[in-house]
Structure formats: structure tokens, C-alpha cells
């Protein structure tokens, strides 16, 4: 699901895409989903889009 968001923003440069992903997750995601995502990112889950992972670390 998060990967879908990253895919939509793939045309932007890295910094802007990550900022927008963070904003989207803040606005629309339940905190427990954000925590799950953070945990996946921390564990280095390689199914995460790298920009999503970057966003997760910034949440």
C-alpha cells in the first residue's frame, strides 16, 4: 500500500517525494500502520520502495 504511494510519486526528485510521502502518511494513516511501516523499514525489509523506507525513517 505504501509502495503504491511511492510509485505515484516516482517522477519527483527524492527529497520532494519523501516529504510528500511523509505528509500523506501523517494525514491518512492510523498510527499503528505507521508503526508497522517503521518497524519494517528498521528491519531493512527489501520489499519496501527505498523512498517509502526513507519516509518511514522520517516519521
Amino acid at each position: 500500500m505504501g509502495n503504491d504511494i511511492a510509485r505515484q510519486l516516482a517522477h519527483l526528485d527524492e527529497e520532494e517525494a519523501v516529504t510528500r510521502i511523509v505528509a500523506h502518511l501523517d494525514r491518512f494513516w492510523d498510527p499503528r500502520m505507521r508503526r508497522t511501516l517503521q518497524a519494517l523499514a528498521a528491519a531493512g525489509d527489501d520489499t519496501l520502495d527505498p523512498r517509502l523506507a526513507a519516509a518511514a525513517r522520517r516519521l
Binding site: 494525514r27 491518512f28 494513516w29 492510523d30 498510527p31 499503528r32 500502520m33
Partner: peptide, 12 residues
């Protein structure tokens, strides 16, 4: 904070 959407409810 925002809550769960229907698909998220099912996942959770």
C-alpha cells in the same frame, strides 16, 4: 490521529 480505513480494519 487518523483512524483505520475499512481495508486497514481487516488487515488489523
Amino acid at each position: 490521529e487518523p483512524g483505520l480505513r475499512i481495508p486497514n480494519m481487516f488487515d488489523s
